[in-house]
């Protein structure tokens, strides 16, 4: 545990042993002073990759804590048209734990890398990053994905139609679909919708009750720390400085509420991990929501310009008609 001495000063007892209630982070309590920038009043987690031993306790704890929410699809599935709409069925593969599925919201990604001439196996807990401005939530055309004021994003399985747009706009391929469950069955199951999307909701009910997310509580190595975003960012930088490491998640996609600290650059780590469907990358991500938001100034200016043009034309016409007599 010699590395322990290099741990950030963030009070682990407050955040971990006493739970969120002791740390004064239960809904509302931590948000008394208005946020200066979006995300300031969010809860974030710090994941210290070098501490993780890959034991999988967190994965088991997540399953245990959230099993009651797992989909129970009705079979046979309604036939979907056109044939391009494919069934996504994980109900017979619930044990799969090497990727994200509707039954596995957290998995351990593996990487073999060389640190200071020494070969090392790193294990990385992967789940939803809980973006500060989450495209999965904002771009859901149906309002079934929502963001809580503490920064948690979650998908309401009662409302979700399973169109998978959240998955397509998520830079990390996080939400996963299960066919044969949810509201679409009561609407037009053959022509629209395709089940329900599932992902980590950062144990929103436990957090609201002042408890820690199950995966954080179960970890024997205290890999994850949870706290106010600003403090977690500071802690991540402090840790990175202490171990000569690197931070991921602070600016990615405009900022997330999950900060990874790695002993090697993330470009190196990226090359060592397996990525694919349900297996997120560690790539640089620009702020996906910012692009269109930049057009807001145009949306404000256009009506002003339009009205000004009409007024200008009116006075020009009046003047010329006066001149004409």
């Amino acid at each position: 545990m010699s590395r322990g001495s290099k741990r950030p000063t963030l009070s682990r007892r407050a955040f971990l042993k006493g739970g969120l209630a002791a740390a004064g982070l239960v809904a509302g309590a931590g948000t008394a002073n208005a946020a200066l920038t979006p995300g300031d009043d969010h809860l974030a987690t710090l994941i210290d990759i070098s501490r993780c031993i890959g034991c999988g306790e967190c994965v088991a704890a997540c399953r245990e804590a959230n099993r009651s929410e797992y989909p129970q699809p009705k079979k046979p599935f309604p036939k979907m048209y056109p044939p391009r709409a494919k069934v996504a069925d994980w109900s017979d593969k619930q044990a799969v734990d090497d990727r994200l599925t509707p039954y596995n919201w957290l998995y351990i990604q593996q990487a073999t890398i060389t640190v200071a001439g020494e070969e090392r196996d790193l294990t990385i807990p992967r789940r939803c990053m809980h973006c500060v401005n989450p495209p999965c939530v904002k771009l859901c055309p149906w309002g079934s994905a929502k963001q809580l004021e503490n920064g948690i994003s979650r998908i309401d399985s009662e409302i979700c139609l399973g169109g998978s747009k959240c998955n397509k706009v998520c830079p990390w391929d996080i939400p996963q679909r299960q066919t044969g469950v949810g509201l679409y069955l009561d609407l037009l199951p053959n022509f629209a919708g395709n089940g329900v999307m599932y992902k980590c909701h950062r144990c929103h009910a436990r957090v609201a009750a002042g408890e820690l997310p199950a995966c954080i509580e179960a970890c024997p190595e205290d890999v994850q720390t949870i706290g106010p975003r600003r403090e977690i960012i500071a802690a991540a930088h402090e840790l990175a400085k202490a171990v000569g490491g690197y931070v991921y998640g602070e600016a990615e996609n405009g900022g997330t509420n999950t900060l990874y600290v790695s002993p090697v650059p993330f470009e190196t780590l990226r090359e060592a991990i397996e990525t694919g469907p349900g297996q997120p990358d560690l790539q640089p991500v620009k702020d996906t929501m910012a692009q269109a938001n930049q057009l807001i100034s145009a949306m404000v200016m256009a009506p002003i310009a339009g009205a000004a043009a009409a007024i200008g034309k009116f006075y020009a016409a009046t003047r010329s008609s006066q001149e004409e007599g």
């Binding site: 057009l295 949306m299 256009a302 339009g306 009205a307």
Partner: peptide, 12 residues
Amino acid sequence: ALLLGLLAYTVA
């Protein structure tokens, strides 16, 4: 944005 401009022009 363009539609808003056009609508504002038309209304004014």
